[in-house]
Design a protein around this nucleic acid. Structure first.
Length: 117
DNA sequence: GCAATGACGCTCT
DNA sequence: CAGAGCGCCATTG
């Protein structure tokens, strides 16, 4: 009984881990100077309509991770983190350092910078 | 266990 | 074009 229960818990853990892995795998493919939307990443990861899961997976990233999380923006080309927050300004700074420009409304022109798989 | 809360996005006014 | 409504679901209090 003990082993069965722990196996179930282990399976659940592995499943969530797999979901995160697939999302991370996609994010890792976004080239420098390009961005992808949360929904786009979810679609490419095989779970259309689950943009929020992309956000959660990135939210759980450990500090110091090499995943280019800053290349993921929302459908409007904007940064979904608080513009005044530390992480928000960091994301913008990282993107600009890669040559990604923001328009007057603090959004990225997706027609120009969105990663086309 | 249940309600509220998001690193979201699409549709309809 | 802006805003409300709704679906989504892991996390949190």
């Amino acid at each position: 009984l003990e082993t069965v229960n722990s196996k179930r818990i282990h399976d659940a853990f592995m499943k969530k881990n797999t979901i995160d892995s697939r999302i991370i795998a996609i994010v890792n493919r976004i080239p420098r100077g390009k961005v992808a939307t949360y929904g786009q990443v979810a679609r490419l990861a095989g779970m259309p309509g689950h943009a929020r899961l992309t956000g959660y997976a990135l939210h759980r990233l450990p500090d110091g991770s090499k995943v280019p999380w800053h290349r993921v923006v929302n459908a409007k080309g904007g940064i979904s983190l608080g513009a005044d927050s530390f992480a928000g300004s960091l994301q913008r700074a990282l993107l600009e350092s890669e040559g990604v420009a923001f328009n007057i409304r603090n959004a990225i022109p997706l027609n120009r910078y969105q990663w086309k798989k």
